[in-house]
Design a binder for these strands. Sequence first.
DNA 1: CGATCGTTTGACGGTGCTCAATCACCGTGG
DNA 2: CCACGGTGATTGAGCACCGTCAAACGATCG
Lengths: 268, 268
Amino acid sequence: MEQTVQPHVAALPTQGRLSDLLSVMGAESDDRRLCDACLVPIRRVRSGAALFHEGTRAESVHVVRLGTFKILRLADDGYEQVLGFAGQGEVIGFDALCNGVHPSSALALEDSTVYALPVRELESLRRRVAPLDRALQTTLSAQLASSAGIAEVMAAVASEVRLARFLLQRSARMQAAGQSPRRLRLPMSRRDIASHLGVAHETVSRSFGELAGWGYLSVDNREVEILDPQGLRSLARNTRGFVEERPTRSGLGRARLSRSNGACARTQ
Amino acid sequence: MEQTVQPHVAALPTQGRLSDLLSVMGAESDDRRLCDACLVPIRRVRSGAALFHEGTRAESVHVVRLGTFKILRLADDGYEQVLGFAGQGEVIGFDALCNGVHPSSALALEDSTVYALPVRELESLRRRVAPLDRALQTTLSAQLASSAGIAEVMAAVASEVRLARFLLQRSARMQAAGQSPRRLRLPMSRRDIASHLGVAHETVSRSFGELAGWGYLSVDNREVEILDPQGLRSLARNTRGFVEERPTRSGLGRARLSRSNGACARTQ
DNA sequence: CGATCGTTTGACGGTGCTCAATCACCGTGG
DNA sequence: CCACGGTGATTGAGCACCGTCAAACGATCG
């Protein structure tokens, strides 16, 4: 399990209150007594370590308490496909319930902690605690809805558009979490982003450079600041057809030319 | 003129038994009495019509009884992104529960019928009928797991690999439904496939031609027969890097059996 | 039959992938 | 403190696959 003999880990409790779990999931518990009485195990996962591996039996459904995870699958040819990133309040591993085996792995991108809901107790717990049942259903529904996010980024043809959409998704999450939507701290590597966008990792670097050169972003390694959200959004619109010239300062650098007229990409 | 044999409209019941619903979902109902007593509304959707539109309020969660639907989202620029296709037994519209509004549209690709579970009764129904609760959880978990499918196809760089993976996914579904995994009847247009694969629809046509030319498939408009499943699988492995030692068009009509692919005849 | 839509095929230009080299940043150990 | 190896990030050069535009072909329906 977890290393209990670590002195600097002593601050971490091994159990948390159910009401706290509901709180990080964004649900309000109307029944404090029941929720406070119920305790949920807490697991700590160090940066780089795995919460679980693809193909292993699913013991628990996890809810991120603190930190970030990347969800990935290994293709038959060994390619590591990053399916998404899970932050605070998000459910990890629910996709394993259908047959009891994890179809994907979860790796911590930084030191993180999760609530672990044992699968065996899940049904009875959901039945006993209605707020948890509702919170799970809502979160799962949202997760299904956001599973279109990877399609959204990969659907764009231009790599800068893919990156722009990805950054806007991150920004929206930051805003939903009550933090600044402009300053992004990306805990994942360029290679992880590349896998998630469906491009080569060199292309991610180049796209960061382009977006920064056009004045949309300020990039410092993994610290990104969005300088022009409106412009970024308008750039992110172009699913097909390539980026048109940037209207900011006179095209000093390398403004992309689009020879076609300005008609929108309405293909039908 | 006379209605001697008119199963056209009259044959469709407006309600179905809950046990039948559980049956198409692949779940066995251990309590026949309760399930038989409960009736579920059935809706008919004609080919090309919408089950619901993006942005509308979600009244029901639907389960496909017969037919096929395409699930799509309209991007800001009007591009129609096809997120997936739903066949018999699959749940449609659960992603709307989190905020009550459909984040995507569902269009029937052929004359279809669905069970409609009203959202208001959903919670009480799940609480009363345990098999339905379990079936819903299982199906949703499977849906989450299969939402990686679109990432799987779009992750490949070569368009033929994307198409091969898509066809293999369809084949797996056919097999899971107890039908032949070799003969595929594709109810969707080339443009729909193209949007789902993230390529231009002309490229889909070309890729069909390539796969057929290499002997993997036999294509007749929307009727596809998989001639060499093993070869198709081995081709589908190449996520990155273009197909190794592929017979570049140098007059070789058929070069499928030669070289590297020979070692891939393993059971999977 | 004519109209509309879907499918196929062709040609051209461009963008991103592959292969490399270089730089920046660490933690390690001499 | 600096050399050292390792990882991650950036930049460059060439090539070919795919997107766009265009037109022919085929199917379905009224």
